[in-house]
């Protein structure tokens, strides 16, 4: 077996970070390894459409293409406590009503959620974080410098 292919099968790139893909052969389960939350393939797909509604494809990639729905799953799984996880899963179940809907229909759905909806605020916060810290944005849009090699404490901004 080609080693490179093998590695590609084991990891999925989400916003630039490699996430271990699920070992499960169950096609009804999420595509990445999750330790704490149980997410179905269908829910993962719906989440992909939700993050795409938050940051859609324009002349540059949207959230789904950057696999930010997988990033959101990973963060909810590892970086949130049980209460947040429950609210997320409840919200995701409700969002299944948006299966097969267009991006603009899903945007309407999200806009009609209560202002303090915890599912939306969590998914939006993590999608924005994943987007701004994605390899794509940090290399092409808002450039992150690992080695600035300079400091100027008074740079005049050209009008």
């Amino acid at each position: 077996m080609n080693r490179r292919t093998a590695i590609q099968q084991l990891f999925i790139i989400a916003g630039g970070m490699m996430i271990a893909s699920s070992c499960s052969s169950d096609r009804n389960k999420a595509s990445i390894e999750l330790a704490n939350i149980d997410v179905s393939a269908e829910e993962e797909d719906v989440l992909g459409n939700v993050v795409e509604a938050i940051i859609p494809k324009t002349d540059s990639p949207g959230a789904r293409e950057l696999n930010l729905h997988l990033f959101v799953l990973k963060m909810v799984d590892d970086c949130h406590g049980p209460e947040d996880q429950k609210r997320f899963l409840d919200g995701l179940k409700n969002a299944k009503s948006q299966k097969g809907k267009t991006t603009s229909e899903i945007q309407e759905y999200l806009k009609n959620l209560p202002a303090d909806d915890s599912f939306l605020s969590l998914v939006k916060k993590r999608t924005i974080q994943g987007y701004l810290n994605s390899e794509y944005v940090m290399k092409n849009k808002l450039i992150y410098e690992l080695v600035p090699a300079r400091y100027n404490g008074a740079l005049k901004i050209e009008a």
């Binding site: 630039g16 963060m75 406590g81």
Partner: peptide, 19 residues
Amino acid sequence: NLYPWQFEHRNEMPYKIQQ
């Protein structure tokens, strides 16, 4: 030499480790 996107949790400590 890692870039921000190369950290598994974008440099955030997982919930369990924090607890």
